[in-house]
Design a protein around this nucleic acid. Structure first.
Length: 590
RNA sequence: UGGGGCGUAGCCAAGUCGGUAAGGCAUCAGGUUUUGGUCCUGACAUUCGAGGGUUCGAGUCCUUCCGCCCCAGCCA
């Protein structure tokens, strides 16, 4: 691992503790080699980010290595579109793999290993139908029944398996099964399938194969081939671990039986020399990530996209990596989140608030500030000259001068936020109201002198006077001004479309909906709010797509990567609101 | 008594050979502030799923019980 972000400084998780122990005992000679092994059948989500940060982070912290390996053993579900997106997302998160492999790289070796298993009497070809196999597997509490084909000779099995590979059999005609124990209490061990026939085109190997290895057979062997030391996956694979071990151990045993090698001897000898088959990898499981208010399973995410509940995989409301990217989340904020949630074995659901905290913290430091009015109402400065103009040079960041400045024009007519004015304001309201004085950010103090309404009672315009002695938003007499409003000069403002996002789901846990309900029933149609006519300061007109910034007093935003066109159509996505203690006060008053 | 895991605050999560419950988020209360932002300070588990036992001493050891998650794809 090279080129990776800063290391964390906190209590170690159980996996790091295991590695420490391995290093102390001299296991693997101090080598640490992990891998991130996605199946390219969908887009990566924040749950994958946890795994990515763990696996690549381990390599970083222990001066080890981490591979990217596509687990592409099921061609009908996979596609290059997904492998491309996965590579892009891992890279965007800030990680660099030491090697990029595919399970399909190992198809020939895997096939030879299967032949060896057959010769060892550890695998057989089963001609039972899927229904029969299911019926004979037994139940969780009752043992299974041996297949009538279980005692075929190695010679017979070898011939059959070769005809499977040769394409002489139809899909589903038979499978290759491990010969373990049909009465095993762990159902995974009741003669699991190793190979199935699928006359399907594979995104990488094309039509070279019509049989494909199963996950359990492939995974541990691929790990060993790559010299992986610590194979980390999620909790639901705990039951698979004995099978993982069986596959690796059985091969290691077979590799010591050269009398069985036959014409593929070269391949077996090569495997036998690999570090992974001398000091084999071990699998460890951690709890997958859950976050309140969203779903994190590929199946559900696909459903949201396909049924049109969202606008695509990168819809900013999606918990996908590309969704967060488009929303304006930074790689550093997601990494920080993954560090903070920890790695453990208990099922847990992290509050979305933590993720929001992480972006806010990151963006607070690095996002330049701008002024933009979301819900505009006109403010006329009555004592300001009709053709007057001020140009204020404002810092792009209040605590970081190095970020520089920009110039913001000021004139007689301004746009301010409708919510910043109240006709009859309570005492705690620090904004504009008849007779009250507020500061216009970095401009002047203004005092409200009145307002106008239309026939329906809507406020059409607010009137005020300004104090020329307060230029820059500061006064010599030191009088206290509690409220500071953002504003934009009506004559100079640029129009923009602002897209505000809130929770995609209207319930806290869309994974556990009531009887007869579907999680999609809880998709909130108001989770996307489009404000087509906002007024923003001119400095924003030429902003490139994909740039993070803050609209002061409002929130963190990001120019949209798809629809934002500098100098033409401005489109800004809300990444997160600012924390809003005024909202809390209002809530408490109500 | 199918098998495999897990249970420390509202949410995550440290807790190594038993020695008297880290940290973060959220929440609440103050202070600073030209963003009701940021920042700073303080509060927030007499108790670790429950009971029993061993011990001078138990979140850690023993034991019984309870609760939750995973497994019966020719998916991963």
């Amino acid at each position: 691992m090279t080129n990776t972000p800063e290391a964390p400084e906190k209590g170690k998780d159980f996996i790091r503790l295991i590695i420490d122990k391995d290093n102390q005992t001299g296991k693997y000679d101090g080598r640490v080699h992990t891998r991130f092994p996605p199946e390219p059948n969908g887009y990566l989500h924040i749950g994958h980010a946890k795994s990515i940060c763990l696996n690549f982070g381990l390599a970083r912290d222990y001066q080890g290595k981490c591979n990217l390996r596509f687990d592409d053993t099921n061609p009908v579900k996979e596609d290059v579109e997904y492998v491309d997106s996965i590579r892009e997302d891992v890279t965007w998160l800030g990680f660099t793999w030491d090697a990029n492999f595919y399970a399909s790289d190992y198809f020939e070796r895997l096939y030879c290993i299967a032949e060896l298993f057959i010769k060892m009497g550890k695998a057989y070809v089963d001609h039972q139908t899927p229904d029969e196999i299911r019926a004979n597997r037994g139940t969780l509490k009752e043992p299974g029944t041996d297949s009538p084909y279980r005692d075929r000779t190695p010679e017979e099995n070898l011939a059959l398996f070769r005809s499977m590979r040769a394409g002489e059999l139809a899909d589903g005609a038979c499978i290759l099964r491990a010969k373990i124990d049909m009465a095993a209490p762990n159902v995974m061990l009741r003669d699991p399938a190793l190979y199935r026939i699928k006359h399907a085109n594979h995104h990488r190997t094309g039509d070279a194969w019509c049989i494909y290895p199963m996950y359990d057979f492939t995974h541990g062997l691929s790990d060993a081939i790559e010299g992986i030391t610590h194979s980390i996956c999620t909790l639901e694979f705990e039951n698979n671990r004995p099978l993982y071990n069986w596959c690796v151990d059985t091969l290691m045993e077979g590799l010591r039986m050269p009398e069985l090698f036959g014409r593929n001897a070269a391949i077996y000898e090569e495997l036998a020399a690999l570090p992974g088959f001398n000091e084999r990898p071990y699998q460890y499981e951690f709890a997958r990530l859950n976050i309140t208010g969203t779903v994190l399973s590929k199946r559900k995410l696909i459903q949201l996209v396909q049924e049109g509940h969202v606008l695509g995989w990168d819809d900013p409301r999606m918990p996908t990596i590309c969704g967060f990217r488009r929303r304006g989340y930074t790689p550093a904020s997601i990494r920080d989140f993954c560090e903070r949630i920890g790695v453990a074995k208990s099922d847990s659901t992290v509050e979305y608030a933590l993720l929001e905290h992480c972006v806010r913290q990151d963006l607070n430091d690095r996002a330049p500030r701008y002024l933009g009015v979301m819900d505009p109402v006109k403010l006329v400065i009555e004592n300001y000259p009709e053709d007057g103009l001020d140009e204020f040079t404002m810092p792009l960041h209040p605590e970081d001068e190095s970020m520089g400045t920009r110039v913001v024009p000021f004139s007689r007519e301004l746009w301010i936020e409708r919510a910043d004015f109240m006709e009859d304001a309570p005492k705690k309201f620090f904004r504009l109201s008849p007779g009250r004085e507020v500061r216009l950010r970095f401009a002047y103090y203004v005092t409200c002198t009145g307002f106008d309404k239309d026939a329906d009672g809507n406020i059409t315009q607010i009137r005020a006077t300004y104090d020329p002695e307060t230029r820059g938003g500061w006064s010599k007499d030191g009088r206290k001004i509690k409220g500071t409003l953002h504003w934009v000069s009506a004559a100079h403002a640029v129009q923009a479309e602002v897209r505000n996002y809130s929770n995609l789901f209207s319930c806290e846990n869309p994974n556990a909906v009531g009887e007869g309900k579907c999680f999609t029933d809880y998709v909130d149609p108001n989770s996307l709010e489009v404000l087509p006519r906002c007024w923003v300061e001119p400095a924003l007109a030429d902003m490139e797509p994909g740039v993070n910034f803050q609209f002061e007093r409002t929130g963190y935003y990001c120019s949209d990567s798809r629809d934002h066109a500098p100098g033409d159509k401005l489109v800004f996505n809300r990444t997160a609101t600012l924390r809003d203690s005024w909202a809390k006060i209002q809530k408490n008053m109500a």
